[in-house]
Design a protein around this nucleic acid. Sequence first.
DNA 1: CTGAAAGCGCTTACAG
DNA 2: CTGAAAGCGCTTACAG
Lengths: 341, 341
Amino acid sequence: MGRDNATIYDVAMDAGVSIATVSRVLRGEANVSPATREKVQQAIARRHYRPSSIARGLTSKTTHSLGIILPKLLNPHYAMIFTGAQEEARKLGYSMSLFPWSSLDTDAYNPAAMLTERRLDGVIVCVEYLPPDHDELVHAALQALRRFMPVVLIGCVPPWYDFPAVANDNAAMMRRVVAYLTGMGHERIAFIGGMQEDKDPLRRDVGYEEGLRDARLPYIASYRAYGKGTPEAGRQALLSMLDELKADYWPTAVIALNDLVAMGCMDAAWEMGLRVPEQLSVIGCDDLFCAPYLTPPLTSINTHQQRNGARAVQLLLSGEKKHEIVDWELMERASCAPIKR
Amino acid sequence: MGRDNATIYDVAMDAGVSIATVSRVLRGEANVSPATREKVQQAIARRHYRPSSIARGLTSKTTHSLGIILPKLLNPHYAMIFTGAQEEARKLGYSMSLFPWSSLDTDAYNPAAMLTERRLDGVIVCVEYLPPDHDELVHAALQALRRFMPVVLIGCVPPWYDFPAVANDNAAMMRRVVAYLTGMGHERIAFIGGMQEDKDPLRRDVGYEEGLRDARLPYIASYRAYGKGTPEAGRQALLSMLDELKADYWPTAVIALNDLVAMGCMDAAWEMGLRVPEQLSVIGCDDLFCAPYLTPPLTSINTHQQRNGARAVQLLLSGEKKHEIVDWELMERASCAPIKR
DNA sequence: CTGAAAGCGCTTACAG
DNA sequence: CTGAAAGCGCTTACAG
């Protein structure tokens, strides 16, 4: 296949100049005579020469590649963040590598090792889905990373993380969502999905409780189900919630951790003969592309994930130390309705 | 931030040995005395030393990073391929960078330039969504890439592409799908989405026509609508197809290019008051995670995309020259039903 | 405007 | 078992 490519020496020899001169035309420096430039460019073309960014990186201490650590990409939520980050990176001349990390699934694997060897110019890390008991592990990984490259956090970032971040205020979101539902007359509002963690004041549970308090409603533990962020987890959780409660106490609205969970809840409702939204309002989060195509179309929250991914790249490369709180938008569709007396 | 990291020289000095010795313990070579090894390891730990894979790459001519060129990741189909490839790569010690390329959207951008400079150890490229009139452009890009690194193709790969590949036989898939529908009594079968291209014998249109011929049905141009692979494109296409035809001639079944298009078709059907599947059967392709959660659950084709992504990585790293044809599975759900007389 | 030389941080024969 | 030296393919002062 002939994969021994031409080097700058080959080109220099062909053009009858020094490698310094080749380097100059490569980087488009002005101080090269037109004739020389021409000769060099011809040699480059003839040899199909492309400078090795890896050799270049050794001198310039820069690789023009970034990394991003995310949970599973199969949730389109993360694919959107990745896409936003990747596109912004490309615009600025950087490539983007993905390093999945969800310690929920694979405790053994820690991407920090692979990343630190690669002298990336920076890394975006999404600390979601890393359960609270792994706090130290996460911190250690972040410290290790930071020693080698700038780090920007994205997603649900606890405020005490001492890193630049593009952070969702999940508590505020939830509070608003609860208000949206209580405003429609709902009083038995379930919240399904996610894990129990006490520390982070930005977490959804805080907002859930605040929202209930705002409406002077009691916090009822039976309406709070923990679980993974998948459709099947959502389905199971709602089914067992209904199973454990007399029908009089069934929730009239459920807030799902994300749209995947919401999809599972809608399925569970259908299995139990509950019509959405007439008998059960459902609201998701992330506003996945399929939300408008569900039956009924799913009300959700759009957090502008692509924009956030792009923003994280900007913070990374500019070196700004900001901790930005992301705005979001309630996408009202047909899966929530006022309660009927 | 102290980002000037220790080098092998620092470690060697700390441990009082030569850099060659440090290099040996780094790479786990056997011929180092236990005492020396210990000293070196301590120095490494104390310095938080991590070898630079980029310096290493300069000598070893290997970067342990792979690339993948895909259309938009926002279609979960491609996210699945990417995930499969990325996970397999990681298992083998490689990282994976994404380079989106859909010349449909961004003619200007050609990822080959960025890739060739990065001396990757290989690249997987998905040539789908690169329209036929860009054939030369695609070929040129592939040749450029191949000069610098091994290339494996994935997806709908025309057989005359002289590359190792993990290829879908879309023609066979379509033929089978048509048979599935004619077996249910359908005779007016529409096919929506994709572009008109004449050359590739593996393309869906070939199978569509074969399928009709198998059932001795006429090919009716009005039932073939071209378009992008998005829900909105699918919706529009079906709406205008219905609009242009007397209701007597409306299709009783539609085959969608992919699940996204199918979602749009189901929406269009709903808008026109056509019930799925009673009045219109719909079948998609790719078996996206949301297919089972649509109403009705969408019949689709599972092409084992994650497995294919992983397989492409294996071909890439093993150097096998195979052109593998992928098997697939019809996922029967409720969106297709026998026709009622 | 151009070139010789040092250096980036490793690995790899080659000696010993 | 260990070290001195060359080399990977570039960039960057420094001279001229």
